[in-house]
Design a protein around this nucleic acid. Structure first.
Length: 577
RNA sequence: UGGGGGAUCGUCCAAUGGCAGGACACCAGACUCUGGAUCUGGCUAUCUAGGUUCGAAUCCUGGUCCCCCAGCCA
């Protein structure tokens, strides 16, 4: 190696260092590998989902890690479907997975692979291992296999079929493939050590007989390789240098290495394990998410309450916010539970910069401005985004009858409540100062159903020429111009930070009964009449919302992505004890 | 119980023998035509007991607690 090469690599390393916000232990391992020119200084990762469910925010962590590392080190990251168990897998999932990875902002170019692409090669490797006397066909039933495996404290016993001849093994394995035996009758097992303290090394199953329609190979195969066998070989075939997976595979690493040591491969990838993401107030296992869908606790994989990428997307989360979240939480080996407040912070931070501000009244209270001329309409200027001068401004119609938020009026205002109350003056955003002069109540219920107010014509646009101040500014919508809308208010899916914490209670008992509140009688300002699916807005003083695909021509539907931070809510909560 | 991992603010991540730092959350204040945003300040942590060292979150020894593994799932 020349001094120039050394300098080049050093500068690449430094670039990588600069572009990363912090050096996690995985990047440190890669730095060290690069320093000794391991793998000819190549960095090649892969994201290997099993197509048996939708991707969730935990996968996003892995995607950002694998694709992110590839990008930083000027390497490559493959997308590989780990489809070795056809009984659980489906094309629906391979499609959603690709959509989600792309949406998150990552690109695998032409490197979309399937473990099933390698079935023939993996089979050949199995033959090699049998020929080397390191694998055998076992006739033990699943039950007996378990019995023979022993326990944590007891060593296993050798299978009676362990010492079959190579010829017999080859013959039997060939016939397994040929479909001569029923499902589950025999397996191919690695001959390692039934007394190993690591249970994964006690002659693990390499192939099982399973007649199931595979989403890619159809019925071409009736034997399928197990993860432990297929995964290291798939990595080797693709030339993966760093095979990043989660902590539960840590004790599989000796087996990963063992398989690669039995066969001739160009590349022996290094498996590195990190802690999977746990997020408060939700669940992350695919099995539980499937249950929530199947038992109809949610409306589907893309229900905006789900931690799936499809759900978050429909909820109004942006790829940028999710990527930023993944960067912020870091990567380490200790089990942890990230507060969902951090995810919410990330989406607020992103949407604050880009979401157009509009006015929407969710729980309308009619207000008649008595001294405002009947029939008059004014077009008032409203800023689209105070954080982004380039976003410009728009006209908002104002008239004698408007709607305000029920929550913005109190007949008997508590301490520190700054909004409208009898006799009090406040500002209508971008419009006028108004003073509440009367309250109309429902005869029967006594509920406030209408407010009578007067306005000060001198305050047009929102400023008083005499310099007087008001304590509050509230949003409003002109009644005659209002567009009816449906708004879906979402909250955490679970009431408990960790729904799995209590071993005596099913996680479903902590499903938040108020995770969805549908408001069908909302009014939004006219510019929202043709809000397109996916467009995000800040409803001023309420939160960030996005148009849902359920939107129809006459009636927009909005999902609340997240509320704004709300000081008054805190004060009120404190007052109520 | 055998094996594999892990313990740092309330939460997540840094500090790689040299002033325990950042983010979120929380609290207080400033500012504000969003009780938003922004700004300022504050709070709170090295699992434990010994040892090595001028100096330990970091090294050594003992203990404690937590997570994972006994699928023909991944």
């Amino acid at each position: 190696m020349t001094a120039k090469d050394e300098n080049d690599r050093t500068s690449i390393l430094n670039d990588a260092r600069d572009s990363a916000t912090s050096r996690d232990f995985i990047r440190e391992i890669i730095d060290a590998d690069l320093k000794v020119n391991k793998n000819n200084s190549r960095v090649h990762t892969r994201f290997p989902p099993e197509p048996n469910g939708y991707l969730h925010i935990g996968h996003a962590k892995s995607i950002c890690l694998n694709f992110g590392i590839a990008k930083e080190y000027r390497g490559l990251c493959n997308l590989r479907f780990d489809d070795t168990n056809p009984s659980k897998e489906d094309v629906e999932y391979v499609e959603s997975i690709q959509e989600d990875v792309r949406w998150l902002g990552f690109d695998w170019d032409d490197r979309r692979y399937y473990a099933s692409d390698y079935f023939e090669q993996i089979y050949d490797y199995a033959i090699q291992i049998i020929e080397a006397g390191k694998a055998y066909v076992c006739d033990l039933s699943p039950d007996d296999t378990r019995q023979y495996r022993g326990s944590f404290t007891l060593p296993g016993k050798d299978s009676p079929f362990r010492n079959r001849s190579k010829e017999e093994n080859l013959d039997l394995f060939t016939r397994m493939r040929a479909g001569e035996f029923p499902d589950g009758l025999r397996t191919l097992r690695a001959k390692i050590d039934m007394a190993s303290p690591n249970i994964n090394m006690r002659d693990p199953v390499m192939y099982r007989i399973m007649r199931a329609e595979h989403h890619r190979t159809g019925s071409a195969w009736c034997i399928y390789p197990m993860y432990d066998f297929a995964h290291p070989l798939s990595d080797a075939i693709e030339g993966i240098t760093h095979s990043i997976c989660t902590l539960e595979f840590e004790d599989h690493r000796p087996l990963y290495d063992w398989f690669l040591d039995q066969v001739t491969v160009a590349c022996h990838s290094q498996q590195i394990e990190f802690a999977r993401l746990n997020l408060s107030h939700t669940v992350m296992s695919k099995r539980k998410l499937l249950e929530l869908v199947q038992e109809e606790h949610v409306a589907g994989w893309d229900d905006p309450r789900m931690p799936t990428l499809a759900g978050l997307r429909r909820r109004g989360y942006t790829p940028e916010a999710i990527r930023n979240f993944c960067e912020t939480i870091g990567v380490a080996k200790r089990d942890s539970m990230v507060d969902i407040a951090l995810l919410e912070h990330c989406i607020r931070q992103d949407l604050n910069k880009r979401a157009l501000r509009v006015m929407a009244v969710l729980r309308p209270l009619k207000v008649v401005i008595e001294n405002y001329p009947e029939g008059q309409v004014e077009e008032l200027d409203a800023v689209n985004n105070p954080e982004d001068p380039g976003a410009g401004s728009r006209k908002v119609p104002f008239s004698r009858v408007i709607y305000i938020e029920q929550d913005d009026f109190r007949e008997n205002p508590p301490p520190k409540y700054y909004r409208l109350a009898p006799g009090r003056e406040i500002r209508l955003r971008y419009a006028y100062f108004i003073t509440c002069t009367g309250v109309v109540k429902d005869d029967k219920t006594g509920d406030v159903i209408e407010l009578r107010c007067t306005y000060d014509p001198q305050t047009r646009g929102g400023d008083a020429p005499d310099g007087r101040k008001v304590k509050a500014t509230i949003h409003w919508v002109s009644a005659q111009h209002a567009v009816p809308a449906e708004v879906r208010l979402y909250d955490h899916l679970f009431t408990k930070a960790n729904p799995l914490e209590d071993e005596n209670a099913d996680y479903r008992t902590y499903i938040n009964p108020q995770s969805l509140e549908v408001l069908k009688n909302c009014f939004v300002e006219p510019c929202l009449a043709q809000a397109a699916y996916g467009s995000t807005y800040q409803f001023e003083r309420l939160g960030y919302f996005c148009a849902d695909p359920d939107t129809t021509k006459g009636k927009p539907v909005f999902n609340r992505t997240v509320t704004l931070r709300d000081e008054w809510a805190k004060v009120e909560k404190k007052q109520k004890g």
